[in-house]
Amino acid sequence: MSDQPVNLVSVNTAPERAKKVIGTVIENVKDKYTIVHAGNSATIDGVKPLLLSIQPPPGILFCASMWTPEEQAEIQQIARETIPGIRTHAIPTGLQVQVGPDGVIKYLMERIDDIMKV
């Protein structure tokens, strides 16, 4: 377990939902990881300025499921170009609609160990 908190940003057009879902995941893994939800961008254009505004730089970016696969790829590319070495994860398109917030939390909980690996 690292003592250094990892800043996580989300790209989600529903910031309150992002905060709730990610907050629940962070709470569930707090015994293993120190993750801080450092910000959310509701637009693709806002991703780079958000990433650059956070110190220390975010270590993880989550793309929400309302973006198309093409948009998710663009968001992740922006993140990697802005912060080399950032870990990115795209929640499958449409997952929120199919399974709701609890399903998204379950999905992320099943993958958080892989996402956190450096």
Rank of each mutant, 00 (worst) to 15 (best):
Pro84Gly: 06
Ile35Ser: 05
Val99Lys: 13
Ile54Val: 07
Glu27Ile: 07
Lys106Val: 12
Ser41Met: 05
His37Leu: 12
Val9Lys: 00
Trp67Asp: 12
Ile75Cys: 14
Thr68Met: 13
Thr82Asp: 02
Pro49Lys: 11
Met66Val: 14
Gly103Val: 11
Ile83Ala: 05
Val9Cys: 04
Pro58Arg: 10
Ile26Met: 01
Gly39His: 03
Ile115Asp: 04
Ile54Lys: 03
Thr88Tyr: 00
Pro101Ala: 14
Gln55Pro: 07
Ile86Leu: 01
Pro101Phe: 07
Thr88Ile: 01
Val97Pro: 06
Gly94Phe: 14
Thr34Glu: 10
Val11Gly: 09
Ala90Asn: 03
Ile78Glu: 03
Thr88Asn: 01
Gly39Lys: 00
Ala38His: 02
Gly23Thr: 01
Ser2Val: 08
Ser2Glu: 15
Ile75Arg: 15
Gly103Met: 12
Ser65Gly: 15
Glu81Cys: 14
Met66Leu: 09
Ile44Lys: 08
Cys63Ser: 15
Gly103Ala: 10
Thr43Lys: 08
Arg111Ser: 00
Pro56Phe: 00
Pro69Phe: 10
Val104Asn: 03
Ala14Arg: 12
Pro56Met: 01
Ile26Arg: 00
Gly103Trp: 10
Val97Leu: 11
Val6Trp: 09
Asn40Arg: 00
Ile112Ala: 02
Thr43Gly: 05
Ala73Arg: 15
Ile78Val: 07
Ile112Pro: 01
Ile54Leu: 06
Lys48Ile: 11
Ile115Arg: 03
Thr82Val: 05
Met116Leu: 13
Val21Ser: 05
His37Asn: 08
Gln76Lys: 09
Glu27Pro: 05
Ala38Ile: 02
Val29Pro: 04
Arg87Cys: 11
Met66Trp: 15
Thr43Ile: 09
Lys19Glu: 15
Val11Met: 12
Val21Leu: 05
Val47Gln: 08
Ala14Met: 12
Asp102Tyr: 07
Glu16Val: 01
Gly59Ser: 05
Gln76Asn: 08
Pro92Thr: 11
Glu27Trp: 11
Tyr107Ile: 13
Ala14Thr: 15
Ile60Arg: 00
Pro101Gln: 10
Ile86Pro: 02
Thr24Ile: 08
Leu51Ile: 00
Gly59Cys: 04
Tyr107Thr: 08
Leu95Pro: 03
Gln55Arg: 13
Thr34Pro: 06
Glu74Gln: 11
Ile91Trp: 00
Ser10Ala: 14
Ile26His: 01
Pro84Ser: 06
Tyr33Glu: 02
Asn40Thr: 03
Glu110Ile: 06
Asp113Trp: 04
Glu71Leu: 09
Pro5Phe: 00
Thr88Val: 05
Leu8Tyr: 08
Gln55Asp: 14
Leu95Asn: 04
Gln55His: 14
Val21Met: 06
Pro58Met: 13
Met66Asn: 13
Val9Ile: 08
Thr93Leu: 09
Pro101Arg: 09
Leu108Asp: 02
Phe62Trp: 12
Ile22Phe: 10
Pro69Trp: 09
Gly85Thr: 06
Leu61Arg: 01
Asp102Phe: 07
Ile22Cys: 06
Gln77Ala: 15
Ala90Leu: 02
Lys48Leu: 10
Ile35Arg: 03
Ile75Met: 14
Ala90Met: 05
Trp67Cys: 12
Arg87Gln: 11
Gln96Met: 14
Ile115Val: 07
Thr13Gly: 07
Glu71His: 13
Leu8Asp: 08
Thr43Tyr: 07
Ala79Met: 10
Gln76Leu: 05
Phe62Val: 13
Gly59Met: 03
Ile78Pro: 00
Lys106Asp: 14
Thr34Ser: 12
